[in-house]
């Protein structure tokens, strides 16, 4: 299982901020998240940047036991 952190609009679409999902890679965890939260969440993932902990990664990145996948939709700070 891998931890996932959902921020801003991704949190709203999923109805939660944290979760634990199955997957050996970032892509597998995101697929599991879309299966769990639905197509609205999937649409947000498609336009989001994905981090592993604090680093930008691709979907093929393998996960370690303490890693956290972070979904970051387009931002609107300031």
């Amino acid at each position: 299982m891998a931890r996932i952190l959902l921020l801003g609009p991704a949190r709203d679409a999923a109805g939660r901020r944290h979760d634990e999902l199955p997957g050996r890679t970032v892509g597998e965890v995101l697929d599991a998240a879309v299966a769990r939260y639905g197509t609205d969440f999937g649409a947000i993932v498609r336009v989001s940047q994905i981090w592993l902990n604090a680093e930008v990664v691709g979907v093929d990145e393998a996960l370690g036991p303490h890693d956290e996948v972070v979904v970051l939709p387009p931002v609107s700070g300031g």
């Binding site: 801003g8 970051l72 387009p74 931002v75 700070g77 300031g78």
Partner: peptide, 29 residues
């Protein structure tokens, strides 16, 4: 750079509702 590089999301709140800002930008690297 704060507006385009920092993970931060703005929700606009009005009487009877709220929504995420439509001014969002793709997060820079």
């Amino acid at each position: 750079t704060v507006k385009s590089f920092v993970p931060m999301w703005k929700r606009e709140v009005w009487e009877g509702g709220s929504a995420w800002s439509e001014e969002a930008q793709d997060l820079l690297r």
